[in-house]
Design a protein around this nucleic acid. Structure first.
Lengths: 139, 139
DNA sequence: CTCTGTGCAAAATATTTGCAGGCTC
DNA sequence: GAGCCTGCAAATATTTTGCACAGAG
């Protein structure tokens, strides 16, 4: 595992330092997007908080990780897998998260560009659904 | 204007206090989503920061305002107009914002519910595009 | 009059910046 | 060896909480 993280870092053009390998491994193992605090906790003091911030930002720029915003008061990051362009459904009551894939956003992006006349390119997009999970519905 | 804000507050089931009328007016006049600081500045000291936080949250619960997240490090709010379900295109370089409308999300929501088996209801959604505006493309 | 809303102070949380030393390439 | 990366300290920004008083209904 560690060695593959190392290779991915190099392929992405980043220096393969110990903190970066550790953080990338944590991201890859996570079932759901992680906050800076989440990452730090899972590394139990092995990496400084500031480094987590800087590393996640570097991963984002390098395309290794994506930024997720679920309106929880802090940013989340997740490993960018092959099955890219997946999104989340978040329970507004308990914050449970599930994924869904196959968002066909190209028509929407074209429509957005047609209306937003001051723009020339769409680079990325965010799409999140907020609802109630079955447990919270029952309550 | 002020009187209409007052009526809207009552209709939404909220007490029509001075800070709320002022904040609602500011939101309605804004061309784009505002942060807590934006709102506070436009009220030049007439309302406390904490009240702005609490009021915007109350508006959100009452359906008067919507929460927008453009990955800028803080939350934005905008008045919920009739032309609801509109979204934004944000320039990743200069943060310029434009709107677009007519996102046909029902099929996507159905697809999300089919895949997210632990969920029973979709209440709302967020969809934002990030790209380059023509000015920043030229640079 | 009752109960919610507000302002003020302070705490808690999240994020950024500066700098000296360490490690990758 | 050069230059990027890290840890530590501290500054800055954002959001939340507690409480006494004010104002809406």
């Amino acid at each position: 595992m560690t060695s593959s993280a190392l290779a991915e870092l190099k392929k992405a053009g980043l220096r393969a330092t110990r903190p970066r390998v550790l953080i990338l491994d944590v991201l890859k193992k996570a079932a759901y997007p992680l906050s800076v605090q989440d990452v730090k906790k899972r590394l139990q003091g092995k990496v400084d908080t500031v480094t987590v911030y800087r590393t996640l930002e570097a991963f984002k720029l390098a395309g290794l990780a994506g930024h997720v915003d679920l309106q929880l008061g802090h940013s989340l990051y997740e490993f960018t897998e092959e099955k890219r362009d997946h999104h989340h459904v978040v329970c507004v009551s308990c914050n449970r998260i599930e994924d869904f894939t196959g968002c066909d956003y190209q028509p929407l992006a074209r429509q957005a560009l047609k209306q937003a006349t001051g723009f020339s390119t769409i680079i990325t997009h965010s799409l999140e659904f907020f609802g109630l999970c079955t447990q919270c519905t029952a309550k």
